[in-house]
Design a protein around this nucleic acid. Structure first.
Lengths: 366, 366
DNA sequence: GTACGGAGTGAATCCGCCA
DNA sequence: GTGGCGGATTCACTCCGTA
């Protein structure tokens, strides 16, 4: 196991984060991503209108006896995380209205300085079955730096490239973790609140550099570690449930990182002009994967921010294609081909069509 | 000026809300909408608490003092609003990450029970000019009831209708207040944070009924009053800046309310209940007639008192159905089928609909 | 193979009136 | 206040079986 200044790297420490965090050195990690218990407190069994019962979160780790108990717990892990963070470090926390106001208020009191809050808008949220409230369709992320005014990492150009060459906004549209990505054991979900990798992809790419150290004190099924490994960041997870630890270890073990240049070349050139990055976030393409111009050569490599690298050329699928065509106006979606698992070549546009319509913004925009 | 139990209605009280709120009666208003200031400097000057003098050079203490001053201010107006609210009342607060975590945490501590948080996603936000953070493209609204478990108004059907017959979600897409709606004086914005009427329209329609009383302790340019008047709700505004008071008065004066039926016919309440026995009384069903669970089996017999007998079970259409569904809450009207004279099976609800038209729209005299 | 329909499900503080 | 009981209430997506 790699280790830097007493900080173990790329591993999972099994145990309660309130016991393990105090053993970690100060000023050691670049970023913390925390997905703490939400303290949901659903009062009764919930049924859908078709009489099926909702498999709600009722895990023991999500139960607190009072608001005060939750605050005590929150203050403890937040202040330890602050100590462990480098002065230039930032903290991400995700939550819902059940807990995010507790967390947000406490982190301000501890000296964190909020840089943004972000809303993860779920394209496929659970409806409100009983018509009693608004459908809870989002979760909130707070992004804060350890100390007001310190330098911090924000990869503005990478975020812009990932977002159709427009500034990345505070509203993020992503589906919940379903389908093949959702880890299941004997058909049962392995973790009740597994986060989608697309969410962590954006978090990690926005606020860390390759080689940075990311701490996740509520590691769960290990999404943070999986994305960190893909993007050549170091991770350190803390998780107290040995079953989750085992699941996360196996998951991360199976990850093949993107080729290093695909990650390191990010930020070196200009931005693309098309939402190509969404295919990466969705996992339809991987950083480092080759693309073939007109289905043949030359070959290009996909970078982690949605740019291509082809020989000495770097840029969007359109920019590079245009250069290859002596500046003729062209559409990269039709000119670049990817190889699918069967070995056949198809134009990128196939993937764009496949990309769930869920990725695009809702239509009702009164 | 109209007035109910010492509460002036449809008017603006000029003065600081911390001075005026204590003069209002308790348990008097149905809803509060608050758009509080979050300018710490302003609050610091006006509401500085009587604490020991702190060293302004020390960043930590400076931060503590500002947060504390803001919290003191927030706790004061929130707790007064809670007193003035009816037990069945709800509170809305809008803010950004600068203040919403203070407000959210404090209102929970004061006993408010959060029902939802909502995000107003701006279709036209101000970009981040420095490229140092994500573009702030949203504001957060918290919707909370005065007391956990109390009855509250949520016009589910009205919200659903407003959203193309889909449940209204917690993400609201609305432009900022621009164009003709934006009040200008000599070309200058009359108020720096004028809220769009579309936002208040949704808030008011969701959580109040015609004739309800809405209190806005930070009235500003009077958007709350304008929408309340349009929708036949009463408003009471508090605003300390006489210029804003004047602007808001003129604005509301010019509003023409919607035609009353257009507001009253909005389906905000349940329809009167029709007991199953009424079908027997009306002769649409006969005692002894069989009913079929979900159109198949088991079969039940209608008793003369409107109960069903199904095997060893006896009870209402709901009770028996519930027992057959392992105690899942259910609606017997949709689960039991009757056979009509042609031999076809239909849910009981068909008969209820026939009856209800007869019940509520009696024929004119023959 | 493909098209289609039905079943399953997801971080959710999820009923309300009346006696 | 509380117990009893009538009855209102779901969206987007995936998976799987069948034609």
């Amino acid at each position: 196991m790699e280790s830097v200044d007493g900080l173990p790297l790329d591993t999972i420490l099994e145990g309660d984060c309130l016991e393990i965090l105090p053993q970690l050195p100060s000023n050691a990690v670049d970023m913390v991503f925390a997905d703490p218990p939400y303290n949901l407190q659903l009062q009764h069994a919930l049924y859908r209108p078709n009489f099926t019962r909702v498999d709600a979160v009722d895990d023991h780790w999500d139960r607190f006896e009072s608001l005060t108990a939750y605050d005590t717990f929150t203050r403890a892990w937040l202040s330890e995380c602050r100590r462990v963070l480098k002065d230039t470090g930032t903290l991400w926390v995700i939550g819902t209205y059940h807990n995010i106001y507790r967390v947000g208020a406490l982190l301000q009191e501890l000296g964190f300085w909020i840089l943004n809050d972000l809303v993860w808008i779920k394209t496929n949220p659970t409806p409100n079955f009983h018509g009693t409230r608004f459908t809870n369709a989002h979760e909130t992320l707070i992004w804060a730096q350890k100390t007001k005014g310190a330098k911090y990492t924000f990869n503005y150009q990478a975020m812009k490239a990932l977002n159709e060459d427009l500034q990345m906004r505070s509203d993020w549209y992503l589906p919940t973790c379903i389908g093949n990505e959702r880890i299941r054991i004997n058909g049962e979900k392995a973790h009740s609140t597994q986060k989608p990798e697309a969410l962590l992809y954006r978090v990690v790419l926005a606020s860390t550099q390759p080689g940075d150290i990311i701490l996740d004190p509520f590691f769960g099924s290990g999404t943070t570690g999986a994305v960190a490994k893909k993007l050549h960041r170091h991770y350190l997870g803390i998780e107290r449930d040995p079953r989750y630890v085992q699941i996360a270890r196996a998951r991360i073990q199976a990850i093949t990182p993107a080729p290093l240049p695909a990650v390191e070349w990010v930020e070196t050139r200009r931005r693309p002009r098309i939402p190509f990055g969404a295919l990466l976030e969705a996992g339809l393409l991987q950083p480092g994967q080759p693309l073939y111009f007109r289905g043949g050569s030359p070959e290009a490599i996909i970078l982690a921010n949605g740019h291509l690298r082809c020989g000495e050329l770097t840029g969007s699928i359109h920019t590079v294609a245009r250069a290859l065509l002596n500046n003729a106006p062209c559409n990269g979606w039709d000119l670049w081909y990817y190889r699918d698992e069967t070995g056949n070549l198809y134009p990128l546009n196939n993937l764009r069509l496949r990309l769930s319509s869920a990725y695009f913004r809702p239509k009702n925009t009164d």
